[in-house]
């Protein structure tokens, strides 16, 4: 091109160079958010993977089995408590609640529940379930505390799933003379189920990794009775075990620590993976 004034003026290099620099910085930021964590998790899995043995996983005396069983039981009981409450609350908010100050207040409460520090849940669990209700430090007290922590997650996910159900399905049901509850039970809930279950499993993934809420409500180390036989028995739990091994224990090999950390992250990731697969499966079966 000959005359290159105006349209291709050299001083336009200013904003262009700025843009190039800024975009480079954005790329770098994205890399910095992910790569360091990916790297240290990679180190953990490599070291942990080398150290994991069947012996370590399955031994009830100095292996991880009691912790794994404890965490799985704890999370299952948590789900049993949190699911009905959370789903019912979501149904209320989405299907029943009139718009107004009450709903506004409920939503604010949910946001705040989600933001309460996990150790404060621990204190609450200690004061209410362990002491006042007299459960003692046990499976049930821990599950109640974790259920409370998971509740806002379950409500939010369920509400989102209910929102996905097309309005025309409800309208069609009402048009056939169904009551609101009949519509909810026969039309809305079945159609929202994949989303609800996925949300529930994801919340349990979060609960499985929590340590602070069970510190004073459920978890022990090296119990003489490693597996609980009732909900009022104390339990061992994987995150608490990892904390203990990393900070307080003596005479534990580095290998065992890395292996424990890998098992915990592996468990949490597996739970999340199950959620994703469930969603895909149930979605595939749905036609609307």
């Amino acid at each position: 091109m000959k005359g290159t004034q105006s349209m291709h003026r050299p001083q336009r290099l200013g904003p262009r160079a700025t843009q190039a620099a800024a975009f480079a910085a954005l790329w770098a930021a994205a890399a910095l958010v992910l790569l360091p964590v990916a790297a240290i998790l990679g180190v953990m899995f490599v070291r942990g993977g080398r150290a994991i043995s069947w012996e370590l996983l399955s031994s009830a005396e100095d292996g991880l089995l009691p912790s794994i069983v404890g965490t799985v039981t704890l999370v299952a009981l948590t789900a049993v408590i949190a699911a009905p409450l959370g789903i019912a609350a979501a149904v209320y908010l989405r299907e029943y609640a009139p718009r107004g100050p009450l709903v506004r207040l409920i939503r604010l409460a949910i946001v705040n529940l989600a933001g309460v520090p996990s150790v404060v849940y621990g204190l609450f669990g200690l004061a209410l379930f362990v002491t006042l209700l007299g459960f003692g430090r046990c499976l049930l007290a821990g599950a109640c505390t974790l259920a409370l922590l998971a509740l806002p997650l379950v409500i939010t996910a369920s509400e989102e799933a209910l929102r996905q159900v097309p309005e025309r399905l409800r309208a069609a049901s009402f048009a056939l003379g169904a009551t609101r509850w009949q519509t909810v039970r026969r039309i809305v809930l079945p159609n929202a189920l994949p989303g609800i279950i996925t949300g529930l499993i994801l919340s349990m993934g979060r609960a499985a990794g929590e340590t602070a809420p069970i510190l004073f409500t459920a978890a022990f180390i090296a119990l003489t009775k490693p597996f609980p036989s009732s909900v009022l028995d104390p339990i061992e739990a994987l995150p608490f075990k990892l904390y203990y091994m990393a900070t307080e224990a003596h005479g534990i090999t580095e290998d065992a620590k890395w292996a424990t950390a890998s098992v915990l992250v592996g468990l949490v990731l597996t739970i999340n993976l199950v959620a994703v697969i469930t969603r895909a499966r149930l979605r595939g079966a749905r036609r609307w």
Partner: peptide, 19 residues
């Protein structure tokens, strides 16, 4: 980023402590 959000805090503590 979502996967990152699922890593338990005790694991971050562990990695900070040992690595």
């Amino acid at each position: 980023v979502e996967v990152l959000a699922t890593i338990p805090s005790v694991v971050f503590g562990f990695l900070g402590l040992l690595l």
